[in-house]
Design a protein around this nucleic acid. Structure first.
Lengths: 299, 299
DNA sequence: TCGATAAAAGAACATTTGTTCTTAAAATTC
DNA sequence: GAATTTTAAGAACAAATGTTCTTTTATCGA
């Protein structure tokens, strides 16, 4: 949201810098070069760093039409938390804002999605990814569980993942409590749980049961602390931060797809064989536009 | 430098959380989950967000051996600036490659996901988004259909979307052919279909049936031409390009979430009411770490 | 050079911030 | 069940923060 605003302020500063009084030019340049510090520091600290007086910054704010200094700084503060990087050649997002109020709203949504995706992937370190993949591949059986909205994610992971892991099971298979289907889960198995606020009571029960049985647990969530007395072997944090009242699952999606990518590529020849048979199905069902024309024979 | 200190504090909080008093547990969880906000916000704002009093945070700081609250927060503030400096661009992706062959492979997967997400969002123009949202909101009933792997996407869209659109229906509801549930679909309705190669025969049949009945159709796919004799009113193209043999659905996911965002924000007061009741459920099921402790009453 | 205007600094002010102190509620111990 | 300790909230306070007001300094045109 405000990462865009921040960018607009910087652009504005850049274009206006020549028409500003000397000290205000210094201030403008400093802000452009140190957006992060500017967001965090107090007005006096910023003034000290620039070498001007505090109220020169106040004057700069009113020069730009802000009703207060704080109003000008706020977008920089929010951008700090959002961590959205709008400087990386994503000018097309800012251009969306020009298309009226709907475009503006759309721009915020789009940059929010990209932000979530990037941050979630950033949190997925190589080490974590590798150990997740190893845990899943070395397991006797692997189970993926989720409920409500996140069930969609588990469903997808299971649908693709079983090509690489024949012993990957989706819990609950249909409706009903996950616990019923977890009786035989043991030490050699791995449970991949996906849950987001409001954390599912069923999923939490499943996590506790797994712990009692000595099953290895991978948790994908926004927090490692989803309930008291829960310990997990591997925690993959994803970002949910959303503009509306519902979480955005795109971050979880890309994390799951990254795992799938490694599972499929490390799956060896068996996985390739299974994929081949799926490709065969592709031929059958998706042949609508396949080259089914009479072959041209050489004379 | 201080990003390390921040991490150490988080680890410390994580290990000590069970031995802390109730409110301090809430505080600890919040800090672990929202390190950025914690660094930026004032003590009162943080306390408000957690739902505790300001000086509970002071007590948490002294519990952990800090001489003041500010001393505890400082590493988080510094990390905010540092983190942003070092990861301002997308250099972190390149750095993944340094971690051996697995890291290299991981880097490719990560940048592939980001590319897919960005491209899909770029294809989602303001005009297309707006007309999709209008079509869905003005429909008597809206149906979302998909099969196999993409069913996960439809399931998710339906799960969240029905908060804004009470007349949003998922087809097929469980298993079985979509056609059976589409008898009463008519002119005033809208069908949102999601399909990717290999294109589902069922979804294609559904599209043809919709066309015969005069139903408006929105198609989310990688191609507008998924089968002969199919016409759609609105086509939302998403990018699938994947490193392995399976499509990446992240692009479709962010497109759907963008639609959801607009639906929810344009849903008006009715949608807000429905969300509120969902929030109530959140209180019930996710109350594990909620500040729902007995309230201290003044006499 | 002078006067008028703009720019900048510094002091003064009200608010907010972190902290401390006091009191009340809950938990624990005997 | 009463006494003690722990836990938490609310009020009080000094230091800081953003803002405003006043004074000083610099700039420009005649």
């Amino acid at each position: 949201m405000s990462a865009i605003q921040k960018n607009e302020i910087c652009k504005r500063l850049l274009s206006d810098v020549d028409d500003l009084p000397p000290r205000l030019q210094l201030a403008a340049k400093y802000i452009i070069d140190h957006t992060n510090d500017f967001g965090l520091d107090t007005i006096r600290v910023t003034a000290e760093k620039i070498g001007i007086s505090a109220n020169s910054l106040v004057r700069l704010a009113s020069h730009l039409g802000f009703s207060s200094f704080e109003e000008m700084r706020e977008p920089f503060r929010i951008a700090l938390v959002e961590q959205y990087d709008s400087t990386g050649g994503d000018g097309w997002i800012n251009r969306l804002s020009d298309a009226g109020p709907f475009g503006n709203s759309h721009a915020r949504s789009v940059s929010n999605e990209i932000d979530i995706v990037k941050q979630s992937l950033k949190l997925l370190t190589v080490e974590k990814t590798e150990s997740a993949v190893n845990m899943l591949m070395n397991a006797r059986s692997a189970y993926v569980t989720a409920t409500r909205a996140s069930y969609a994610l588990a469903y997808y992971f299971h649908y693709v993942g079983r090509m690489a892991l024949p012993n990957l099971h989706l819990i609950p298979r249909h409706m009903g409590s996950p616990l019923d289907e977890m009786i035989s889960v043991g030490k050699e198995d791995v449970l991949l749980a996906i849950t987001f606020p409001p954390y599912s009571a069923d999923t939490i029960s499943a996590l506790r049961l797994a712990k009692r049985n000595g099953t290895k647990v991978i948790l994908i969530s926004d927090s490692e602390l989803i309930a008291p007395n829960i310990e997990v072997d591997l925690f993959l944090k994803v970002t949910l931060h959303s503009l509306h009242h519902f979480s955005c699952f795109a971050g979880a999606m890309v994390v799951l797809e990254s795992l799938l990518y490694h599972l499929v590529s490390h799956g060896g020849e068996e996985a390739q064989a299974r994929i081949a048979s799926y490709e065969a199905l592709r031929e059958d069902f998706g042949a609508y536009w396949q080259a089914k024309l009479p072959k041209l024979r050489k004379k």
